[in-house]
Write a protein that binds this DNA or RNA. Structure first.
Length: 265
DNA sequence: GCGACAG
DNA sequence: ATCTTGTCGC
């Protein structure tokens, strides 16, 4: 009857597209799209974003950031994006940080290239591909990830943090250094102060002061996390500097990768 | 038509 | 984002 339980080899902790919390991405859309196709993809995938409350405190936090080589000129032609003639180098870095010991657990960098220009609102189509490759290089699966960009605080409620978070089906948070959309009230100068970021009558994130007398950051849920948890996580990781430790370290790593070796692609 | 506009 | 030196402030 009960056949000896074949001890299922622990599924590699490799970070790869998952299918949890009922979210499923049956077909991975391509990244080489034109302006309207990209927006359509965002509108469609935004419906899969879930602002669940994560169970328990995340311990291993991944920080992700990208450094790019100077991009050429972008141009549009009949609604299509005619990217630079010469692809832009993309140096993606991911740093897994242990919130308990406050130490780096693992890092991964990946060099790629893109012809998709930077267009406000379509950042993920330029950075996500290489970023996903970096995540795939990790041997451990982070409990959550913080991105250097917006989550749902986006025109179509689908910023970089949502895109990558949904793709990897991992709790994700968007922590941008500046505003993309939305309005908010002034906030106190004290660390920890926060006000809601609103767009079209709905709350899309929060403006958070991580350091006294320092410009605030824009926090918004990416996927599988609620507003309160997102803000809490950012404040927890950003106790010393303006940016959360994971993304701050990823920022340094990506820039080092760019400076030390624009080698293989 | 004129601004605004993550990185 | 990237190009860049020194400099004012906590």
């Amino acid at each position: 009857m009960s056949a000896p339980r074949v001890k299922r080899s622990a599924p590699s902790d490799k970070v790869a597209p998952q299918r949890k919390s009922g979210v499923r991405i049956n077909r991975l859309h391509k990244w080489d799209l034109d302006l309207n196709e990209a927006k359509a993809v965002q509108r469609g995938l935004s419906k899969l974003v879930r602002l669940d409350s994560l169970g328990g405190e995340p311990r291993f936090i991944a920080g992700a950031d990208v450094a790019v080589s100077p991009s050429g000129s972008l141009r549009f032609a009949r609604g299509r994006v005619s990217a630079d003639a010469t692809p832009t180098r993309v140096f993606a870095a991911v740093v897994v940080w242990d919130a308990e010991t406050r130490a780096v657990v693992e890092t991964a960098t990946r060099i790629g290239e893109t012809r998709f220009p930077y267009i406000p609102g379509l950042l993920s189509f330029r950075e996500a591909p290489t970023l996903l490759e970096a995540f795939s290089a990790l041997s451990t699966r982070p409990d959550a990830a913080i991105f250097d960009g917006q989550g749902i605080a986006h025109p179509r409620r689908f910023g970089l943090a949502c895109h990558v978070g949904l793709w990897l089906d991992i709790p994700s948070v968007g922590c941008a250094k500046s505003r993309l959309i939305g309005t908010h009230a002034d906030l106190p100068q004290d660390r920890g102060a926060q006000v809601r970021l609103v767009d079209d009558g709905e709350v899309i994130g929060s403006v958070v002061r991580t350091r006294t007398n320092v410009k605030p950051v824009f926090v918004s849920p990416g996927h599988r996390i609620d507003f309160a948890s997102a803000t809490r996580l950012v404040l927890k990781c950003a106790a010393r500097f303006r940016l959360p430790e994971p993304t701050r370290l990823a920022d340094q790593l990506s820039k080092r990768a760019k400076a030390s070796g624009p080698h293989d692609v």
